[in-house]
Design a protein around this nucleic acid. Structure first.
Length: 438
RNA sequence: GCCCGGGUAGUGUAGUGGCCUAUCAUGAAGCCCUGUCGAGGCUUCGACUCGGGUUCAAAUCCCGACCUGGGCGCCA
């Protein structure tokens, strides 16, 4: 037997001009308003809501019984005729002749989907499946999808190919950051903190231009609105190129993502309440020492010395003064990782850059060391043991081209783009110091 | 890891020692209502995180545990 279609139209595919047309719509029972002889069922699907109207003596009596029993958020498929109606929210309503209840929702609900009553982030994340039924929450993830699509498109247009590198690794990438240890058969292994070493190894293959969008894991016990223990890193690496050139690629990538979202996510931006401003490129290049001077003008940073990393207070002070995206370049070599190339004529500073949004750091990158001898020297200078990096160093022994690259936090990009207060808003199921479920 | 806050019906809140038999909204159950669009009206239901202590008396004060928000450090 042929099954009847559960849905022929989404809410947005119906217009008042479809007057008289028979449709089958399906989704969640958003609200039921019973006015006595007249009952409205607000049905919600992926694209929005639509009104189903039951008028006494005009629709079958048993449909009233079905609707009376409907709990909020139950799943129904409703067949009926479209009727043009100025008084209806979308300019049309559906006069049902059949209502199939496909799944009954229990009551009470863990949170209010209609948004009349708020819920704490923690409550929302516990019931994320239901939180995500709200249009403004769902919109964030539709925009996230478009951001990543835009970045893939852009990088492809620049001849990059997408790669995947291992997430189970034997050693730390650069020391410092805490790693999550795991059991790998009889050995200890770790979750990868960064694809850094692997994407550099790829430069020894002749692939020339590669990028990866994937998860990275940090075991830091940080507890802030802009840190997570599992994040999505957008990593780019290219050969025969300078750090100046990859900075251009980075700012173009960001610009492209904004433009794509502005073009394709008008509705979602409206739902989230964001008036997206296109960032102006090229972004300002601020040398580390000039950034330090700006920070020092503020009293909580006045004692900062050359060689200090820029802390949150400094970041805020500089961000406030610049007011838009900017790069910090020419960092002290000693506070950047061993794989960053120092300037030949001034080795105390290096060809590293951070991409900053006025509110936070978005990305960092650099010209890499491609000389085997210098790399070993730099690893030792940072108090690390080259033996632990054999698999990496090996790629530098047999012809490694000059290369440069960067890594950008996808969540940070989205968070700053949409002005979200908490980075957890940008991840479906965030992993933080305390949360491992759902 | 350090420093501040907070835990009250399913959800969001009011309540700083007795006036709490705990406020309001939302929700749920029931009734009324033929144009709602955060529908409206009436009735009912539902909560002080846990353990110890102080006191004649604790949601309220103290201690501990657990959970949780924010700031810092570190970073993306």
């Amino acid at each position: 037997m042929m099954g009847k279609k559960l849905r022929t139209h989404y809410s947005r595919e119906i217009t008042p001009e479809d007057d008289g047309k028979n449709v089958t719509v399906a989704g969640w029972v958003h609200e039921v308003r019973d006015l006595g002889g007249l009952t409205f069922v607000v049905l919600r699907d992926r694209d929005g809501t639509m009104q189903v109207t039951l008028v006494k003596n005009k629709v079958k009596d048993d449909l009233f019984d079905v609707v009376r029993d409907l709990s909020r958020e139950s799943i129904v498929s409703i067949s009926g005729a479209v009727k043009q109606e100025k008084k209806a929210p979308n300019g049309y309503e559906i006069i049902p002749n059949e209502i199939m209840v496909l799944s009954k929702a229990k009551s009470p609900l863990p949170l209010d989907v209609t948004g009349k009553v708020g819920a704490d982030l923690d409550t929302r994340l516990d019931a994320r499946f239901m939180d995500l039924r709200r249009a403004e929450i769902q919109s964030v993830f539709k925009i996230r999808h478009h951001v990543l699509t835009a970045i893939r498109d852009f990088l492809e247009s620049k001849d990059f190919i997408e790669i995947q590198t291992p997430k189970i690794v034997a050693t730390a990438t650069e020391g410092g950051t805490a790693l999550f240890p795991i059991t790998y058969f009889e050995r200890e292994a770790f979750l990868s903190q960064s694809p850094q070493l692997y994407k550099q190894i790829m430069m020894a293959t002749g692939l020339d231009r590669a990028y990866e969008i994937g998860p990275i894991f940090r075991a830091e016990e940080h507890d802030t609105r802009k840190h997570l223990n599992e994040v999505t890193s957008i990593d780019v690496e290219a050969s025969f190129i300078t750090h100046e050139e990859v900075m251009s690629i980075l700012e173009e990538t960001v610009k492209h993502a904004y433009a794509h979202v502005q073009k394709h996510c008008e509705r979602e931006l409206g739902t989230v309440g964001v008036d997206l401003q296109m960032p102006k490129t090229p972004f300002r290049r601020l040398r580390y020492e000039d950034a330090l001077d700006i920070a020092r003008k503020h009293k909580e940073c006045k004692d900062m010395e050359w060689g200090d990393d820029l802390d949150t207070a400094a970041e805020k002070a500089i961000g406030k003064e610049i007011g838009e995206h900017y790069f910090i370049v020419d960092w002290p070599t000693e506070i950047k990782p061993y794989y960053v190339q120092p300037y030949d004529d001034k080795p105390e500073i290096c060809k590293a850059f951070d991409l900053m949004h006025p509110k936070m750091e978005l990305a960092s990158g650099s010209q890499r060391v491609h000389s085997y001898d210098l790399l070993v020297k730099r690893i030792k200078a940072q108090g690390l043991d080259p033996e632990g990096f054999e698999f990496y160093l090996d790629a530098f022994r047999y012809g490694m081209p000059p290369h440069a690259g960067w890594g950008m936090g996808a969540e940070r990009l989205l968070m700053s783009m949409l002005g979200l207060a908490n980075i957890r808003e940008t991840v479906l199921f965030p992993r933080d110091r305390r949360r491992l479920s759902p």
